[in-house]
Simulated scan of single mutants.
Amino acid sequence: MIYFFKLIRWKNLLLIILAQLLIKYALLEPLKVDYGLDTALTPLGFILLVIATISIAAAGYIINDIEDVEADTINKPDSVIIGKQISEKSATNLFIILNIIGVVSGFLISRAVDKSAFFVLFIITSGLLYLYSTYLKRITLIGNIVIAGLVSLSILLVGIFDLIPVISDSNKSSQLFFLSLIKDYAIFAFMINLLRELVKDIEDTDGDYKMNIQSMPILLGRSRATKLVFILSLIPLMIIVFYLSNNLYKQPMAIGYVLILIVAPMIYSTIKLFNATHKKDYKHISTVLKLIMLTGVLSLLLFQFILLK
């Protein structure tokens, strides 16, 4: 069982669940009355949305590991699960089962909010994860952008399913305000995850080279790729500081939180990128970026105190 949880990247799935929970129950639900919000998702509907999201994400991790056995044997031999602890046949069956659960749950929740067309989001996500594992990740930057985009979508889904189906003339401004707020978090998730994907590519250069994956560090070399990612890491840092100064300048609690738990770690990871040379450096930076994602998600807890002032 422990290897199954490792295979589906249970820590990453918990972060997705946490993000969706906080958007629903720390942002939208506490502020419904004060802001005249309407929400479409019942508790059961929300559970179905979470199941659909994490099932498809878990299936994506499994197919990626199946396709990456040879590369992972080089990049991280101690972490290889397929063919050792879990057979490829069993992993393939799990991939199919989880996709079915995810797609069926997506269909049910789309019907429940009376937006059957939204069902296509789950089909597209499932298909893109398969294409990423088998083809897209071999194309420079495309695979990185796809994965970062899908992580971003997992955050947007709560707004799409909870707010859009019940937009009316009377609540339109409030619904769109909170949808825009969720969109800002999705953009943040996209930027941080894109950086993390690029850092992981630099870390995994040896195995990717053998698998003929045209990642950025293979095309440019580790040193040039590191410098480029260093420059790219300045972009989300500047955007967050700009957002902070323009939107939260009257909120000392929010400013303190963002500066200490988001901006400071981002500056740290940027400095580490500038000096990174060894595989362990990139692994460390990747871990810091994941922690920034966590603190970014946890900042959702602040809004019921900020917006109700």
Rank of each mutant, 00 (worst) to 15 (best):
L7F: 01
N12P: 10
L13C: 04
L18T: 06
L18C: 06
L22H: 00
L31H: 05
G36T: 05
S55P: 08
A59H: 04
G60I: 07
G60Y: 09
Y61R: 06
V69D: 13
E70T: 13
A71C: 11
T73W: 11
I74L: 12
D78S: 13
S79Q: 13
I81A: 10
A91R: 04
L94G: 06
I96Y: 04
V103E: 08
S105D: 07
L108D: 01
S110V: 08
I123W: 11
T125V: 12
L128A: 10
L129P: 07
V146S: 09
G149Q: 09
V151C: 07
L153M: 09
I155Y: 10
L156I: 07
G159L: 12
G159Q: 09
I164M: 10
I164N: 07
I164K: 08
N171F: 07
S174T: 00
L176C: 04
L179D: 10
F188T: 05
K200S: 05
D204I: 04
P217L: 07
R222M: 12
S223N: 14
A225Q: 09
K227M: 14
V229D: 02
I235F: 09
L244N: 02
Q251H: 15
I260R: 00
I260Q: 00
Y268C: 03
S269G: 02
L273P: 00
F274V: 00
K279T: 13
I292M: 04
L294E: 04
T295K: 01
L301Q: 00
